[in-house]
Nucleic acid binder design. Structure first.
Lengths: 159, 159
DNA sequence: TATTGTTATACTCTATAACTATA
DNA sequence: TATAGTTATAGAGTATAACAATA
């Protein structure tokens, strides 16, 4: 019962600490922690549609659009018409965006190190497992049918 | 190495899921998840100064002030001059604020239940322990001397 | 001199709803 | 009819810097 009421605040405290340190670290590179997540998502799955990008963040399509507009101004992201669905637009890192992302990944290394070294290696994998399970449990029944596509779907090739 | 790079995203995913579900749950009561955290902080340590409230959230004093202005309009929070330090102001829940907080606590019960039931009880206490350790590690050296006061300090009685 | 809080200001993220164009 | 994206709009959190009042 104690953990039940403490867990939300502990989760919040850990996330906020990470988020603020990340913002501080990335500020020198002109991006926010959330923009870093967007770039990282693109780096792992190139040429996603905006909708698919939003689903993976996870975030809202209109939020993602606002972020993309900012990132396009920086020249790190570009949008092109989708080859088979002319309603849709694909999003990808530019060459400059890929360089920027590598810089950002290195800039974030100290935070990742500090987080993983705060606990034992076995505890880290346990922690990831528990966090993932909680996220899945909370999101149970929230995703619409179209959002439940497989991670390997929704590339440029027809979903 | 896998966990090291996955942990940040897993932490983010779990927090965002919780935060969005909380916002949705509290929206019917006219408050946000972050405002709930502020009210909960007040409920546990009445008559804090704004600065101390910000430290415990944790948040920024000017952010907290913006939130307090919104909450004062709702009549759930009141600020009074500090009895011994007339620069400072104490913040407390009004009677209506205490009622509101009890409603909100009940409204959040389903989320707390869902989170704690997604994992084993023993895992829940482990999870809280690991999250707390990570937060502490990240905040190491960040707090200024005045912020490192004991949890029992900084009430209305002289700190 | 240092600290508490306020004010002004600006930016990012968030999200809903109405809309256009296309599937 | 449903879907992808845009636009307009609004609000909420975040944080910095300059300032007044007080310790």
């Amino acid at each position: 019962m104690t953990e039940k009421s403490e867990l939300p605040l502990a989760l919040r405290a850990a996330y906020l600490a990470m988020h603020r340190h990340s913002d501080a670290q990335f500020a020198a590179h002109g991006v926010t922690a959330d923009q870093f997540v967007l770039l990282a998502t693109l780096a792992r799955g190139t040429a996603l549609t905006q909708r698919e990008l939003a689903r993976r963040m996870p975030s809202d399509p209109s939020t993602v659009r606002a972020m993309l507009v900012l990132l396009e101004k920086q020249g790190v992201v570009e949008r092109d018409v989708h080859p088979s669905d002319s309603r849709a637009r694909t999003v990808a890192l530019t060459a400059a965006g890929k360089r920027k992302f590598r810089q950002l990944w290195n800039a974030g290394e100290s935070i990742r190190t500090q987080m993983s070294e705060a606990i034992e290696p076995a505890e880290a994998s346990e922690l990831v497992r528990l966090l993932t399970r909680i996220a899945e449990s909370l999101n149970q029944g929230v995703l619409s049918a179209s959002q439940q596509t497989n991670e390997n779907d929704a590339r440029v090739s027809p979903a």
